[in-house]
Simulated scan of single mutants.
Amino acid sequence: MSDSNSADTTARHSLTLFSALAVRKALDEVVLPAFTRDSGVSVIPVFDPTVQLVRQIDAGTPFDVMIGVTDSFFPLAERGLVDLDTRTAIARTGVGLAVPPGTAHPDISTRDALVTTLRAARSVAYSRTGASGLYFAGLLRDLGIADEINARATVIEKGFIAEAVVDGRADIAIQQLSELLFVPRADIVGPLPEEVQHYSQFSAIVSTRTARSAGAAAARSLLAHLRGPLAAEAYTRTLLDPVTTY
């Protein structure tokens, strides 16, 4: 078999998926195994915050499908790296707060209650590059408490932030609700109050290279699966809201 035929076979029977962390639990546990079982196409996932995924793409790392914060696709499309016509909204999630296991749940029912809780914390953990961390850093500035909280904050480059409340580095963790679930020993208090809540919408998109290759049909099949009823159930169980419209 020639090298070109081998490449086409690989494109048809495996896909490289760049995916944001927020949907990882649903994908790992349900969505991707079901897709491979039903289609015969294996999926090689790479999970990272959207910002990190974009950096990899800009560095030339090849991928077939990306799941990320929807707004991140437009600059990529302008550079000819993704096919905007394939953009498919799949889910959204809000930002939540977690505390160490067995700890009394603080009051976060209102904006003022959240401010009081954050000020009382020994250390607040959040991400430096994740969508929730970028939003929270801005929220602290908007609330007028950025200097006070950041003076003792535990700022983590990326990953599952609730690990910091389990290992003792912090007593509050801020991250998207679906990501807090990845640390089962942490206690999720709940979402931030609606008046300061921020929802991140996640969509899937096909790379321009793949859209023009023998792997296009498999990639579009994956997009349809990510929008299907089984995936919607998995999103709901992992504190994501399935999205059906833009």
Rank of each mutant, 00 (worst) to 15 (best):
M1Y: 13
D3K: 09
S6C: 10
A7L: 15
A7T: 14
A7K: 15
A7D: 14
A11W: 13
H13K: 15
F18R: 01
F18E: 00
L21N: 07
V23K: 04
E29R: 10
V30G: 03
V31Y: 05
V31P: 05
V31S: 05
L32V: 06
L32S: 02
P33Y: 04
P33G: 05
A34W: 04
F35P: 00
R37S: 14
V41C: 10
V43R: 02
P45R: 09
Q52S: 15
I57S: 01
I57K: 02
D58T: 11
D58I: 09
T61I: 14
G68R: 06
V69C: 10
V69P: 00
D71L: 09
F74K: 13
L76M: 07
R79N: 03
V82M: 01
V82H: 00
V82D: 00
D83E: 11
L84W: 03
D85L: 05
T88Q: 08
I90R: 04
A91M: 12
A91D: 00
T93D: 03
G94S: 06
V95W: 00
L97Y: 05
L97Q: 03
L97R: 04
P100Y: 04
T103C: 06
T103H: 11
P106Y: 12
D107N: 14
D107R: 12
I108K: 06
S109Q: 12
S109T: 15
A113S: 15
L114W: 02
S123R: 15
V124S: 01
A125N: 03
G130Y: 01
S132C: 07
G133H: 11
L134C: 06
Y135Q: 02
G138N: 13
L139R: 01
L143E: 02
L143A: 02
A146H: 07
D147A: 14
D147Q: 14
D147H: 13
E148C: 08
I149S: 00
I149E: 00
N150H: 10
R152M: 11
R152S: 14
A153H: 04
A153I: 05
A153M: 08
V155A: 14
V155W: 09
I161H: 06
A164T: 12
G168W: 11
R169M: 08
R169T: 08
A170K: 02
A173H: 06
Q176I: 01
S178P: 04
L180K: 07
R185S: 13
R185N: 06
A186H: 04
P191A: 13
L192M: 06
E195I: 08
V196S: 04
H198L: 05
S200T: 11
Q201L: 11
Q201G: 11
Q201K: 09
A204R: 05
V206L: 09
V206A: 09
S207I: 10
S207G: 10
A211Y: 10
S213T: 06
S213P: 12
S213M: 12
A214H: 15
A219T: 09
R220I: 07
L223A: 05
L223N: 02
A224K: 09
E233L: 14
E233F: 11
A234I: 10
Y235N: 02
T236F: 12
L239Y: 14
L240C: 04
T244V: 14
T245Q: 12
T245W: 12
Y246G: 11
Y246F: 13
